[in-house]
Write a protein that binds this DNA or RNA. Sequence first.
DNA 1: ATCGAACTTTTTGATATCGAAATAATAACA
DNA 2: TGTTATTATTTCGATATCAAAAAGTTCGAT
Lengths: 154, 154
Amino acid sequence: MGTHFKGTQDQMIALDTYIKLTRASDSIQARLSNAASMQSLTISQFGVLEALMHLGPLSQNELGTKILKSNSNMTTVIDNLEKRNLVKRQRSIVDRRMIEVFLTPTGKDLIEGLFPHHVLAIQEQFSVLTTEEQIALGDLLRKLGRGENEQHKE
Amino acid sequence: MGTHFKGTQDQMIALDTYIKLTRASDSIQARLSNAASMQSLTISQFGVLEALMHLGPLSQNELGTKILKSNSNMTTVIDNLEKRNLVKRQRSIVDRRMIEVFLTPTGKDLIEGLFPHHVLAIQEQFSVLTTEEQIALGDLLRKLGRGENEQHKE
DNA sequence: ATCGAACTTTTTGATATCGAAATAATAACA
DNA sequence: TGTTATTATTTCGATATCAAAAAGTTCGAT
């Protein structure tokens, strides 16, 4: 147990697992960020391009929901993608509050070229685990991500 | 499988597990950031104060290693903690390249007051998993965080 | 038809985060 | 003893990230 904390057994295990979760996620993220498959895209930029590739044009709000980022952050990320001519904005005709974000041909080519390499990089990162371990891990993470125990409305 | 990607079975599982890892980590982080136990501290600020509380004075470089952040980032984080009088810098006498970072009395009181609540918040987040599940999860995450398969020097 | 609630995006101001280059100090070694 | 390599921190410029407030749009309910 890598901690200097003295509490109940239950607390120590939770704290230890939390530290491992953070470290594993940060480490994987850092390794993937440096991978050639990311070119000069950030994780969020990559996530936006990937969502547009798989799902077609989306509003900024929808994109934010997909990649778990705030709306104000989406404005910034889309700004930077637009500067590089990878996406285009277009006010929605049906609901003028929304802005539809599209891949440009350049953006489409880029993400379609990078994505397969990205998958290979991920596959390699996870190759330290067997298929069964990955599935078991995914199950535990899913429970954690959903976080069902919500009886704490302070 | 929540993905729109067609690849080998192995790739799809790795990609799916990767997405779950990212989402679980982001979700937990976001919930803890909003918890009362964080007061107005960021995750990194909290991590620095916690390390200093448990380990005593450390150099910025050591702190960066502990919380997995770059040296230049540590300069910024320590700057902001210093502004709020929670830590103090002092050039090391033995090696004048280093800066020792200390908790001020205010900083010490703050982190000692917050830490137990932080542990409770983490314990609650992880209570969706049994003790055995948390231990199993920790084992898988440890392997992943270490990332042994390093035969990819391009 | 209008008023107010709800929704989408932007702006603003603060902090985080990195890599690269600059600066300063120590260590290695010839 | 110099000279070079290494190490620790800072600065700079770019991007990310959030919450809160502002601005514009739509919707609901009268």
